[in-house]
């Protein structure tokens, strides 16, 4: 299918590729070189060692992985549950598609601000509700207690991204064949059995896509956490993207900063390459 004049096609995609090469691939290659140097001297893997095995009590990798694992798994479970609940409720679905995607589309900093306001220990509406409901916990310092801060930013991130998971799963649900469910119903399978043996396997591709996209964005999270805690208290929410920012802007440690960025890139690709290959097969190889 398609036209065969090779020059035209190549010329049409060239500007987009040029932009990517100049703004993205070149700086990336440069960053890789930078990460091996310190003040003009070659230092090998020193910065990488500092990130992985530094004596520093700050653990950006640990924090990032904890944040990612908690946020991704919770939003997947919630989003999946709601999507299944909404399947076959057409009217509710329309409402959800138009309204409930709001947390996902508004600027993340706005969502983060709203939650910061609600989580305020003195004037926040959440502590008020808890007292109102008779929860005997008193004044909870959601964001300034190092033991709670991570949970609070995860809560906010889950709120923002659950609609995304839900949309993906809903799309997956709609593409499902009906016959396996009818067969299961005829065989008298219980709801739980249908869920585990029929629904989950059939939905696996959608769930995988949602999980991978969520992971990619959770790994690079910056704005939400910055607004809520700026990485504090006592670095409890200090994640990798902040470890690119802070050493660079405060201490001009270009090399270390570049190394952290490169680790983020490697983490991202390790987790998404299978999906990329699959997407590529589906949409290009077929064309």
């Amino acid at each position: 299918m398609g036209f065969q004049d090779r020059g035209v096609g190549a010329a049409l995609v060239a500007p987009a590729l040029l932009l990517l090469a100049v703004m993205l691939l070149l700086p990336q290659a440069h960053a890789l070189v930078l990460s091996l140097f310190e003040e003009g001297r070659f230092v090998g893997l020193k910065h990488y060692r500092a990130l992985f095995a530094g004596a520093d009590p700050v653990r950006p990798i640990g924090n990032t992985l904890a944040f990612t694992a908690a946020s991704v798994s919770t939003s997947l479970i919630l989003g999946f549950g709601i999507a299944v609940l909404l399947d076959r409720r057409r009217r509710a679905q329309r409402l959800v598609r138009s309204l409930a995607i709001a947390p996902f589309v508004i600027p993340p900093i706005v969502g983060a601000f709203s939650w910061k306001m609600m989580l305020d220990p003195n004037f926040g509406v959440l502590n008020y509700f808890l007292t109102f409901l008779g929860v005997p916990m008193g004044r909870i310092e959601w964001l300034s207690d190092p033991r709670l801060a991570m949970a609070s930013v995860v809560l906010t991130d889950v709120w923002m991204n659950t609609p995304f998971v839900m949309l993906v799963v809903l799309a997956g649900l709609q593409a499902l064949p009906r016959s396996p469910f009818e067969a299961a119903a005829i065989d008298g399978a219980s709801g739980w059995l249908v869920l585990r043996r029929v629904l989950l396997p059939l939905l696996a591709p959608s769930l995988l896509v949602a999980a991978i996209f969520r992971t990619v964005f959770a790994l690079r999270e910056f704005a939400t956490i910055w607004v809520m805690t700026q990485g504090g208290p006592v670095n409890a929410t200090y994640v990798l993207s902040m470890d690119v920012y802070r050493p660079l802007f405060l201490y001009a440690r270009e090399g270390y900063s570049a190394a952290v960025g490169f680790v983020m890139l490697v983490l991202t690709f390790t987790l998404t390459l299978p999906l990329m290959v699959r997407l590529y097969r589906v949409s290009i190889a077929r064309a």
Binding site: H30, A31, R220, V244, Y245, L248, S257, G261, L265
Partner: peptide, 11 residues
């Protein structure tokens, strides 16, 4: 899939 922050040190 590039995390945008990655190009910051170089830029």
């Amino acid at each position: 899939m590039f995390p945008p922050v990655v190009i910051v040190p170089s830029m």
